[in-house]
Nucleic acid binder design. Structure first.
Lengths: 223, 223
DNA sequence: GTCTATAGAATGATAGAC
DNA sequence: GTCTATCATTCTATAGAC
């Protein structure tokens, strides 16, 4: 179909332009010029500029969320319905980090688009992210099963901090590279994943360990 | 001067409208209507819409950064040039969190504007944030003095994660409240500060303790 | 059903009178 | 320093060709 061709051209051109220049700088006219289609085609196929952006973002989000849930499910099955907390956290932040970081020149258009989306956060994208809560609840459930002694509040804060570290590192990767004069290697994705998972795991378990071994913990803290 | 009156009215009206409705939804015409001034006055006093936003953001940023540095300086003076790491981290994230969180109905226009700025991150604001590196280097210096045994890489990652947790919690405070069904109390600002500082401190010191007491750490990890 | 051409409404910016 | 009038650009919507 010619329809599908036009639609696909628009999506590809839009993703490329948004990835390179950001949402604020790219007009519909830029997109249709790049895609060699008519201006009205965008409205015909997507309804509006915002819905075009939403479609791009939803497509990529679904892929990432599917990966996350697959990793989570696999881990829980292997553990008989209960996965280690660090494996759960890895399933939560790994796909996103792997999708967005890595050597600059190897980054796909999709990856650069998702980085842009996490930096600029325009209204249509914010609306979609707000519907992500049900997805996160699945991780909350797994974390509860993994750490039955932890209170819900601690679980929620742990998840919040894990996502915080992952997303902020993506958002501010350029600034961290500049600040550290390249000493923080953001191309080494697995190292970044390990750091985020390690800190989030500590946040979720540290108090518990100390509570279980108060004397040793006190002794350790004293020196 | 009538000039100053007009200028001030525009700033106040713009901050209020942006805080309430976001950068994308507020036009210059909305602002001049709210401020009871002429449309051309914005351009005359600020040059462009972006420069108006920049002026608003810079004013608030400078105030926060001043607070941060004051807390940092005080802490280092009290410690004879070397402050405890948790006090340094508190100086880093405390002012921002205190400025943006707290009971919704008590939040000042300035606070709501800064939350909006951290959520939407429009181009003029991003440009200003990119110049914040020198400010952060002062904290890097203090952290190095506080933890002379830690490598630079660890220090940079620790600062990155501390900022990540603070900013993400502000950005996504609504989502965290909804996800946790109110169990995470974001109105209790000092509790939030304590949580962020605690996790960041662990991230910066945990490995060190284990390295110093490998046998005990291994034993603890095994059970 | 698919696409083009074109009109309409809204916005940021500016020139020039006062 | 202030204001009116106006411009260029943008997104959106629709009438009608294929």
């Amino acid at each position: 179909m010619a329809s599908d061709q036009t639609r696909t051209s628009i999506l590809a051109a839009a993703e490329r332009l948004y990835a390179d220049r950001g949402f604020g700088d790219v007009t519909l006219r830029d997109i249709v010029a790049e895609a060699n289609v008519n201006l009205a085609a965008v409205n015909y196929h997507f309804g509006s500029k915002d819905e075009l952006i939403a479609e791009l973002f939803v497509t990529r989000s679904i892929a990432t969320n599917r990966e996350r849930l697959h990793e989570l499910k696999t881990a829980e099955e292997q553990g008989g319905g209960r996965a280690p907390i660090d494996v759960i956290l890895r399933a939560l932040v790994g796909p996103t980090l792997r999708g967005c970081l890595g050597p600059q020149n190897q980054r796909s258009t999709a990856a650069r688009f998702m980085i842009r989306a996490s930096i600029e956060s325009v209204p249509p994208i914010r609306r979609i992210k707000n519907r992500e809560i049900d997805h996160l609840r699945k991780f909350i459930g797994a974390m509860r099963r993994s750490l039955p002694d932890r209170s819900d509040v601690e679980i929620y804060w742990g998840l919040n901090f894990a996502l915080a570290m992952a997303h902020h590192t993506i958002r501010e990767s350029e600034r961290l590279t500049k600040l550290s004069e390249g000493k923080c290697d953001l191309d080494d994705v697995e190292d970044v994943v390990a750091r985020v998972v390690s800190v989030a795991t500590m946040a979720l378990t540290a108090g518990k360990i100390e509570a279980k071994t108060p004397a040793r913990a006190l002794a350790r803290d004293a020196r």
